[in-house]
Nucleic acid binder design. Structure first.
Lengths: 210, 210
DNA sequence: ACCTGAACACCGTTCAAGT
DNA sequence: ACCTGAACACCGTTCAAGT
């Protein structure tokens, strides 16, 4: 084959395929060779477009984070609404790619979309009257909560097998085998009440002046 | 060599070495061959003690979770104290092995220490008067928050290089390059205020009767 | 029972060779 | 510039062979 008249690959095609592979088969299924095969080329071809596998992951991560909506931080300075809507959108973006969360949670690094999101959230809090040091911590705790909730289902962490919960060993887990069945309600319910509690608690902790 | 008179390996020796390797070089540095080399044996020897690499990881995970202290859930029914002390101890246990958190956060599965912790936390909340469905969600949100905070430093997610934060693109991130320097204060401060906010907010949401 | 080396089907990445 | 196959130093796991 050698060089084709029209390039077979593009950065975008590679990144999209990588994300699809991660979603379908997990982070460890993403090998450069598998990815190349999926794209109909040989393994080393990818290195014409990215210098390393990690660079592909970075590009995919930025594509995911770019979807997060930070428009809740409006000019009205309503930090409660800003924080709540950001957290929901952030979680939705990560939860769409649960297998990718361990990578996504590693912070923005030098990725533009990650930095843009941080800038909007931090800026929104500061402009709503929060002292910068507090605003930083608030952004951090939202990241903790969102990443933790998207990292993996709480409910699915419990096996779907009543025999695994011997009442002699675990007297309170008699219903735990039902958790997986109600995964959606448990996880979304926990996220929503947790977010509400967090925002309520923050309001108690500090009443910013605009 | 063939079979030695005294076994060279034990499950405990393998698990301890695996955890050390993860701590020092990351989850992806843990290969069965590296691990075996570290223990002075050949790769396949491990399979006499564990049937799969994942089983080694499971055993290491349970060793870490076994260190979590749930004694804060005392018979006095003080759920605020129970929750706060559990969360702190849980975070300390995970943060001691940050590279291992993506694995640890995947829930207890069938691991006894993980189940014991869940039983104590859930049981503690229920005995303090929380309805089971609420108690489940509270346990879930603590897991989210703790796992997210241990998964990786918020502060270290921002590169230590002022030039990465162009004021034209990120008007509010002018100080972001200093975050890594204050990693400890930022991350621990965010965890502590977040935990306080969460507990305060939960108290508002529901006043359980004992 | 508990170790070994050989083997199988994989990895990420480099590089010279092709057009 | 953009693809290829060959090569290097790795993987997890199986298995027959040793004691």
């Amino acid at each position: 084959m050698a060089r084709p008249r029209k390039p077979l690959l593009s950065r975008e095609r590679i990144v999209t395929a990588a994300l699809a592979l991660i979603d379908e088969e997990g982070l460890q299924a993403l090998s450069t060779r598998r990815l190349a095969a999926e794209l109909g080329v040989s393994g080393p071809s990818l290195y014409n477009h990215f210098t390393t596998k990690d660079e592909i992951l970075d590009a995919a991560a930025d594509m995911v984070i770019a979807k997060v909506d930070v428009s809740g931080f409006g000019p009205d300075g309503d930090w409660r609404r800003g924080l709540t809507e950001w957290a929901r959108s952030y979680r939705a973006a990560l939860a769409a790619h649960p297998n990718f969360v361990p990578f996504l949670a590693q912070g923005p690094g030098r990725r533009p979309a990650g930095l843009k999101m941080a800038d909007a959230a931090f800026g929104g809090m500061v402009e709503a009257g929060w002292p910068p040091a507090q605003a930083t911590k608030v952004c951090a705790m939202v990241r903790y909560f969102v990443a933790g909730s998207a990292l993996g289902s709480f409910a699915r962490g419990f096996v779907d097998d009543a025999a695994a919960y011997d009442p002699a060993d675990y007297p309170h887990l008699g219903q735990a085998h039902l958790l997986a069945e109600h995964q959606q309600q448990v996880d979304e319910g926990a996220f929503e009440s947790g977010l509400r509690a967090l925002v309520d608690g923050l309001a108690l902790q500090h009443q910013p002046v605009s």
